[in-house]
């Protein structure tokens, strides 16, 4: 199989796409642009419209308004079976009554690819995905990870313009999920195929993606690279959905009060009384009210002396130097806030 660059690396564009189920609006005027060859993730809580978007792109649904272009071609009126969009389903949807080889060959058969070419292409894909040994097996005889590779193989053998994945890791156990995640990313890079991935897991989204679109209640909240999404969320929803966010009021050097977001690992706590005097750090006193142990890190809940909501602070559970101690609930601590390290959320919602 030769996935030549012009077909595999296609541009996906959504322009003001909306979709209604009856009176319920599932997707509201979403505009997106997916760069050719990139790994793009639709991230959001359940019911945010991400799966609907995927079904719109794959042609199982028709948008109520707006347009979808793949490689510059408007997809309106092109039915699902003629879209050249590969899909990997949440439950993989492998045909249980067909062998691995037959599953992969099915699409080629439907596209009337001659028998000999079919065999060659199936073989090439299986080689590429390292599943040749599984050729004659049935889906129920495969492990979760193997099933997933077959599902990917079945989709890419047709040399689609676009590969869609609907939460393909959600059926795997936690340990396997991390391994397959790495595999998936490598695979995508090897195939170089433009991929749209749907998940509600922020960690998955951050680790896999070139770009992320965060959705909530059918609306696009933010589209950017993972670092920007995590460090510079445009609104409180994105800030809260992709991680924990502390909102702190700071007074700048110009005397203006600003509301800034701090991730828990951007702050640190130390015993009171020995505060270093650093103009770039603001120090507040608080009391530890809870401590959660995660293994590598510890998370403290610190109540500041005023009535502000508690602040969450992450610290290494075994500090490399003896400078920082661990604290217990009830301890009084100094909270160090790097004044130029916070992020001022532009849209307060």
């Amino acid at each position: 199989m030769d996935t030549s660059a012009d077909t595999a690396q296609s541009h996906l564009e959504l322009e003001s796409v909306s979709h209604w189920y009856g009176d319920v609006c599932a997707v509201r005027s979403v505009s997106l642009s997916v760069r050719p060859g990139s790994f793009f993730t639709l991230l959001g809580p359940s019911g945010c419209g991400k799966t609907t978007l995927l079904r719109l792109v794959s042609g199982f649904l028709n948008p109520g308004a707006g347009s979808i272009r793949i490689g510059g071609v408007d997809q309106a009126g092109i039915p699902a079976d003629r879209r050249r969009v590969g899909m990997v389903f949440q439950d993989y949807a492998l045909f249980p009554h067909m062998t691995v080889a037959a599953n992969i060959a099915y699409g080629l058969k439907m596209h009337r690819v001659p028998r000999e070419e079919r065999a060659d292409r199936v073989h090439a894909v299986m080689q590429r995905l390292d599943i040749e040994d599984l050729k004659q097996r049935y889906p129920h005889e495969l492990s979760g990870g193997q099933q997933q590779r077959v599902a990917v193989g079945r989709a890419v053998v047709l040399e689609p313009l676009l590969l869609l994945m609907d939460e393909p890791l959600s059926n795997l156990d936690a340990k396997l999920r991390v391994r397959i995640r790495t595999e998936l990313k490598e695979l995508q890079q090897r195939l170089g195929i433009t991929t749209v991935y749907v998940t509600h897991d922020q960690e998955e989204a951050l680790s896999l993606s070139d770009d992320i679109a965060v959705l909530d209640r059918g609306r696009l909240q933010q589209q950017s690279d993972p670092v920007t999404i995590y460090e510079k969320p445009v609104n409180p929803f994105v800030a809260g959905f992709v991680g924990s966010a502390n909102m702190l009021h700071l007074t700048g050097q110009d005397g203006e009060r600003r509301l800034c977001m701090y991730r828990p690992e951007w702050l640190y706590v130390a015993p009171t009384g020995a505060e270093a005097d650093d103009p770039k750090t603001e120090i507040r006193t608080g009391t530890v009210t809870a401590r959660e142990y995660f293994g590598p890190t510890l998370r403290y809940r610190v109540s500041l002396t005023d009535d502000a909501p508690p602040v969450y602070v992450d610290a290494p559970s075994r500090p490399r130097t003896g400078q920082r101690d661990t604290f217990s609930p009830g301890d009084e601590v100094a909270l160090y806030i790097p004044t130029d390290g916070g992020w001022e959320i532009p849209d307060r919602g």
């Binding site: 949807a93 045909f95 079945r154």
Partner: peptide, 27 residues
């Protein structure tokens, strides 16, 4: 039978009656 099996076949280029013949009837 999961709906995704139908969708899967359609995504691979089968039209409805092919889905019925190849997937629904055998299963």
């Amino acid at each position: 039978m999961q709906v995704s099996l139908d969708d899967g076949a359609r995504n691979l280029g089968a039209h409805r009656m092919q889905v019925f013949r190849d997937i629904t009837v055998p299963l």
